[in-house]
């Protein structure tokens, strides 16, 4: 009897203790229990929609319009007479608009060979963590360029002036500072300068950004271009051409609604067909250009 009642007291005590614990659970920890894990999207993998010359996985969200002006000055090695290239530059400007959060379209015009261009950028996968885990961003870019320069006698019709660019952008934001991107590229030119040049050009881009502070980032971008006939082209008669791979180093400066990018690059062209396909200058003899991109974003949402 004595043992029995002792047991009961212990059980009763335990119940009281347990129920007390339930009651005294504070609101804060109850709230934490109620909040389900969320899917967190990796935002701002790059500061701008371009790493330097080439596209990054960033794009305009729905109803956001990006007005971009880019400028590349002449060769730094052109000497003091040309003020190290500052006397002559090329300009490219474009309007780029987010139709939806995953689809951006843009049109642009460049001084370089008086080229018009249009593109569509489709976000297929976005890097996430939390409830859903996706390690990378994946974006498809399709772009068309139309060379309107009329001094090239080979370009007889509109067809011969067109080229098409396909890119798959694969990027990952590793941490708050470091993001890297791999960009397999195919460029189809309807007309190429010589029969040694392939109509289809394969290239792969490597890009990265490293944040130096909250609003300043360092970008590097390199495209390896596969040219099996490179040597033959560089010795071809009558116009030997030596092509180089574009390497660009830039700084992003973000000020509210603007992103200002300033860079050094061995390519003066600012669109894929030009900087991937036709870069003929090199860092090794200072054939580099100072340049900048300015981006101003306008919002059309209510």
């Amino acid at each position: 009897m004595k043992i029995n009642s002792l047991k009961s007291v212990i059980i009763l005590g335990l119940i009281v203790l347990f129920s007390n614990q339930v009651w005294s659970q504070d609101l804060d920890s109850l709230l934490d229990k109620e909040i389900k894990p969320q899917t967190i999207y990796a935002a701002a993998t790059f500061k701008a929609t371009r790493i330097v010359n080439g596209h990054s996985v960033e794009q305009m969200k729905k109803k956001q319009l990006d007005f971009r002006i880019s400028h590349r000055f002449g060769d730094i090695n052109s000497g003091s007479y040309n003020l190290y290239g500052l006397d002559n530059g090329l300009i490219h400007f474009s309007l780029e608009y987010g139709l939806t959060d995953w689809l951006e379209v843009g049109i642009g015009r460049s001084t370089y060979q008086k080229t018009f261009d249009g593109f569509a950028k489709v976000s297929i996968l976005r890097q996430t963590s939390g409830a859903k885990n996706m390690p990378i961003h994946l974006t498809y870019l399709f772009s068309t360029e139309y060379i309107s320069l009329n001094t090239d006698t080979l370009m007889k019709n509109a067809y011969s002036r067109m080229s098409y660019i396909h890119q798959i952008l694969i990027a990952r934001k590793f941490n708050e500072s470091l993001s890297l991107q791999l960009t397999p590229t195919v460029i189809h030119r309807n007309l190429v300068p010589t029969e040694l040049d392939k109509n289809d050009l394969l290239a792969i881009g490597l890009g990265g950004r490293y944040k130096l502070s909250k609003r300043i980032a360092l970008n590097v971008e390199y495209y390896y271009v596969y040219r099996p006939n490179e040597k033959a082209i560089s010795q071809s008669i009558p116009t030997p051409v030596k092509y180089y791979n574009p390497l660009s180093i830039g700084i992003d400066i973000e000020t509210g609604g603007h992103v200002f990018q300033i860079m050094l690059t061995n390519s003066q062209a600012m669109r894929e067909g030009g900087f991937i396909g036709k870069t003929t200058e090199t860092w090794s003899n200072m054939g580099i250009h100072l340049g900048f991109n300015i981006s101003r974003v306008f919002s059309f949402t209510k």
């Binding site: 109850l30 709230l31 909040i35 969320q38 935002a43 969200k61 956001q64 974003v297 919002s299």
Partner: peptide, 26 residues
Amino acid sequence: NEIAFSVLTTSFKFRRALMEEHFNEN
């Protein structure tokens, strides 16, 4: 008479996408 609130800062929606990004990022 106790009150507790909790909100994820990423759940705030702005009119401008860029502003939202800066809010969370900077």
